[in-house]
Design a protein around this nucleic acid. Structure first.
Lengths: 112, 112
DNA sequence: AACTTAGATCAACAATGGTTGATGCATCAA
DNA sequence: TTGATGCATCAACCATTGTTGATCTAAGTT
């Protein structure tokens, strides 16, 4: 089997980073949160009210996304504001771009 | 809460499609397969030998990815060749791009 | 100091997802 | 037609994730 794709031709994040980010994005509730954060920074109570979520449930998912490096928090007094980590999105886009490069090559016949 | 992100400003796939693709990418084994397919079309036996996987296990993951629209199959005689669906990768890149647009906006103070 | 509110964390439970070995169904070769 | 090979599918089991309600801490308020 020929080599697949070089490691980071134009700036995609590494395999494990990508996996964690994909996992963080692989949940409907988290995607809603991510979409909300796509409009800019939001505080937890805003997200919780806006999406109608139990606080504990939201907090759990925020943690998952934070630990994956998808979002980051800014504490201010009694509130915590979350935002998307721009590097994360770029990293994933890059990773996907890296991947797409060679993907159109047809297979050599398998076992001729 | 202000509106988040418009539905498809420049060609990202829709929310549910994105979720399925992210889920399909959120597994280490599947990522290895995807990376292999990044080098072009491969037949199942090639993948199975190349990655040292039990046939049943590989077949399971190929199905997950196929059903998510991430890869597609081409049958030829006794073999089945898989490749990445280019639209899938572009769709995700677009979705991520859509998202990144407004993400830098700072939050209005939450409950002033 | 006593009270309230934002948010994190925890423990118990529920649900989803992945692995393994067996079986089935085509296709090709002899 | 018989036998072998490539791949999909199934059922049973195991592992990882998500949910819920309770509890905890740190700011703010009065």
């Amino acid at each position: 089997m020929p080599a697949a794709v070089a490691d980071h031709p134009y700036g995609g994040c590494d395999l494990d980073q990508a996996r964690q980010l994909f996992k963080a994005l692989a949940d409907p509730l988290r995607l809603e949160v991510v979409q909300a954060l796509g409009g800019g920074e939001r505080c937890v109570c805003e997200l919780s009210h806006g999406l109608g979520l139990a606080q504990s449930r939201l907090s759990f998912h925020l943690k998952v996304m934070r630990e994956a490096g998808l979002i980051e928090a800014r504490e201010q007094g009694r509130w915590v504001y979350y935002r998307l980590r721009p590097g994360a999105l770029e990293g994933l886009q890059g990773w996907l771009g890296d991947l797409a490069c060679g993907a159109a090559t047809p297979a050599a016949p398998c076992c001729p």
